[in-house]
Simulated assay, not measured.
Amino acid sequence: MFKAALASMLFCLASAVLPLAQADIKSYEFAEPEMAQRFVDLTTVLRCPKCQNQNLADSDSIIAKDLRAQVQKLINTGQTDRQITEFMVQRYGEFILYDPPFNKATMVLWLMPFGMVLIGLWALWFFGRKTHNQGAMLTPSEQQQLDQLLADNQPPSRD
């Protein structure tokens, strides 16, 4: 009963918020529907400089609104997606891209997951291998002394 009520509340909340997010994008005017789709695509791959974990489409910050207006202006002036992203990178750095290119500055970012996997595999191998501790071999005289000590410590039998 509780799960059904919670699910219906979440559905109502999502259906109320989703049109608000789309309304902001629909408020930008474009001559062709293709341009509007390009706007949506670009604003979802560009990161908000203030929010850091949100793209331009999802962010409500003032700078995100300014950047959405800038993207709209650049699309309406006939610039390609590549030109627009290069403009944004020149102005805000590669941080603005959610999918940064592979270069010297981002090499650690791209190679770190592979390095962590290799370190994990090495740790599993290193700590997972069995160490074979073989006892030292006794000389015949040491073996005789050991047998004598064991025989001396045997309790007498009750026959």
Rank of each mutant, 00 (worst) to 15 (best):
M1Q: 13
M1P: 11
K3V: 08
L6R: 15
L6G: 09
L6P: 03
S8V: 04
M9E: 15
M9T: 15
L10C: 11
F11S: 13
C12Q: 13
A14T: 12
S15D: 11
P19I: 03
P19G: 03
L20D: 07
A21E: 14
A21V: 12
I25V: 10
I25C: 05
K26E: 05
E29A: 10
F30D: 00
F30Y: 02
A31L: 08
P33V: 07
F39M: 01
F39R: 00
T44V: 06
L46V: 02
L46E: 00
R47G: 01
P49M: 06
K50F: 08
N53V: 02
Q54R: 07
A57D: 05
S61V: 03
S61E: 08
I62R: 13
A64E: 00
D66E: 13
L67Y: 04
A69E: 02
Q70I: 02
K73W: 02
I75H: 00
I75Y: 00
T77F: 01
T77Q: 04
G78W: 05
T80A: 03
I84L: 03
T85F: 01
T85R: 02
T85Q: 06
E86Q: 09
E86M: 12
M88R: 03
V89D: 06
Q90I: 07
Y92V: 01
Y92I: 01
Y92K: 03
G93C: 05
G93L: 04
E94M: 12
I96G: 02
L97R: 03
P101F: 08
P101V: 03
F102T: 10
N103G: 04
N103A: 08
N103M: 05
A105D: 11
A105G: 10
A105S: 11
L109E: 10
W110G: 02
F114E: 09
G115Q: 15
G115N: 11
M116H: 15
M116V: 14
V117I: 14
G120S: 09
L121N: 03
L121S: 04
W122V: 13
A123Y: 10
W125K: 13
W125N: 10
F127V: 12
F127T: 11
G128L: 05
R129S: 12
R129D: 08
K130P: 06
K130H: 14
N133L: 14
N133S: 11
Q134K: 15
G135Y: 07
A136Q: 09
A136C: 10
A136T: 11
A136S: 12
M137V: 12
M137A: 12
M137C: 14
L138I: 01
L138V: 01
E142A: 04
E142C: 01
E142G: 02
Q143D: 15
Q144K: 14
D147W: 09
D147H: 09
D147I: 10
L149S: 14
L149W: 09
L150D: 07
D152S: 06
N153V: 03
N153R: 06
Q154W: 11
P155I: 01
P155A: 07
P156R: 08
P156C: 04
P156L: 10
S157G: 12
D159C: 06
